[in-house]
Design a binder for these strands. Structure first.
Lengths: 149, 149
DNA sequence: CACATTACATAGGCAACCTATATAGATGGA
DNA sequence: TCCATCTATATAGGTTGCCTATGTAATGTG
């Protein structure tokens, strides 16, 4: 198969996947994309300051402050003072936040799985194979892009 | 490579791609995901009624009415009376809407391409190959899900 | 010690979704 | 024909999540 057969395939696939995930896979906990990604970052990297979280998610600091207030009201994150700098507020994931994130992931994965059942075995295998090849590359991409902080 | 090595690879890839597209690829025209997808539907399938567009995009009819008012104010769509049914409003893409959609696609593709340049040649080839395999399957998925109307 | 810088919070506004409801046209039966 | 009902869209009012502009407290610096 010629590699240059469809140079826009990556773009088309990415747009298609985005529509699929945003429109057709529910977020049962009502978490927005930014909220879920922020919790995910706290889960993977531990407590972080608000400005860092804002930069990593590509939103302004006031937006992140507001989002974190909602997440704190919901008991999913907690604010901790930074002992070395009185201006800084460190945000950490609570046990409830961790649990919510795990449940969200499971629920979305189950739903996606159900959606994938409408495909043939062969189509599913194709998708599986392609995903396993592409995943590390895509993760490297997002990681390098989110690392501006 | 074992197909069952990472059963959640599809889910992880799809979440990763969604974050990449929603957070790191700009929408220069300020079109929301729903707005762009609605214009795309009008471009591919021609004039449609408001209720159909709402169902296809998974939003309520009032939300679609409101979105279309904004798009109409921006000159991207036009309302046409249905000669056979006085209640119905058919919505069609204007020339400006068509142009906006093409520009959006090109801009986003260019940006994505720039982002992909941070990868090695080999990684890009892997992504390209995987995308070409997965694209038809993903398109079939979204099409069957959006076809509830 | 005064002044700039940094980290976060607050205020006010807009976009894009929602539910509930109103209105105009179509349709079907007495 | 006429009235009731259904259908397609519009309107009203509320929430979330983003924005810019600005305020405040802590830190660093000449």
């Amino acid at each position: 198969m010629d590699v240059d057969q469809n140079p826009a395939a990556v773009g088309e696939l990415f747009e298609t996947v985005t529509v699929l995930m945003m429109r057709h896979v529910p977020a049962p906990d009502g978490l927005s994309l930014t909220a879920a990604a922020t919790l995910g970052s706290l889960q993977r990297r531990g407590p972080q300051r608000i400005t860092s979280l804002a930069t990593a998610q590509g939103v302004t600091q006031p937006s992140m402050t507001q989002l974190l207030r909602r997440l704190e009201d919901a008991g999913l994150v907690a604010r901790v003072a930074d002992p070395t700098d009185g201006r800084v507020v460190l945000v950490e994931l609570t046990a409830a936040g961790d649990e919510t994130l795990r449940t969200r992931w499971n629920t979305r994965l189950e739903h996606l799985d159900k959606v994938l059942q409408t495909l043939t075995d062969e189509e599913r295998a194709t998708l599986q194979r392609a995903a396993e090849e592409a995943l590390p590359v895509a993760q490297k991409l997002v990681h390098s892009l989110a690392a501006r902080y």
